[in-house]
Amino acid sequence: MAQATAKAPTHNEALFEYLLRMGDNSLVLGHRISEWCGIAPALEEDIALSNTALDLIGQTQMWLGLAGKVEGAGRSADDLAFLRDAWDFRNLLLLERPNGDFGQTMMRQFLFDAYQMLNLEALKTSSDQRIADIAAKAHKEASYHLERSRITVIALGDGTTESRTRMQAALDAHWPYIGEMFAADAVDIAMTHAGIAPDPASLRPAWDGIVLPALHEATLRVPDGDFAHRGGKDGVRHTEHLGHMLTTMQWMQRAYPGATW
C-alpha cells in the first residue's frame, strides 16, 4: 500500500494525525518539564513546573485517548504514549529540545503557552464536539500556564545582566523553531476545511500580540530572520533529542512489556 500513503489523507487519517499532534505536544513538553522535578532553582519553581507537567500529562490522556478511539485499532492513550517510536511522534520540534538552563525552559514554555492558549481557544468552537470539550478544559489550564511563563520571562529578561544574557540566548536558540507552529500542511488543511481546527497561520497575529510586547518588556531583542526548522509535527525529521527522551520515558514498558501498577 505504499502508493496509498502518498495520497492526501482521508478525513479519519487526518483527524488521527491531528489528535496525535495535540497529544504529543502536551506529552513531550510535559515529560520535558517534569525532568526539573527535584532540581529546579527554587522550591516554588520546582512545584510550579511539576504542576504544569501534571496538567499537560492529564491533557495528553484526553487527546491520545480520543486519538486511539478515532484510529479504531484498539490502542489506548498509554499504548500510544509508551509503545510508539520516535518517528511516529507528531510533536513540534521546539518541545523535544533539551531543557537547557531554567531560562531556556521558561522561554520555551512562554513561546508555546501563548500558541497553545490561542489554539485551544479556537478549538473550543471545533465542529467536533469531543475536541471542543477537551479544548475547553485544557484552555483554562493553558491560560494559567501562560500567565506564569509570561511573568517569569519578563522578570528574568528585565533582571540582572546574567539573567538577561541567558534569556536572550534562550530566545535566540528557540526562535528558529517558532515557524513550525504556524506552518500548515495537508493535515492542517484537511482539519481547517472540516471546521475542526483553525488554520495555524491565522494564530500568528494574536501570538505576536502576546509575545512581542512581553519580549519588549523583558528588554529582549527579537531575532531577525524567519527560518523555520520543520519535521516534528509530520514526524519526518525529529531532532536526535527525542529518541533519547523516549528511552527514559518509555523504559518501563519496553523493559517489562504490559507491566501495570
Binding site: E45, I47, N51, L54, R148
Partner: peptide, 13 residues
Amino acid sequence: RISQFGSTPCKAQ
C-alpha cells in the same frame, strides 16, 4: 503571592 502553584494542582502559595 509567593507562587502561582502550590502543594496540589488546585492551590497557589
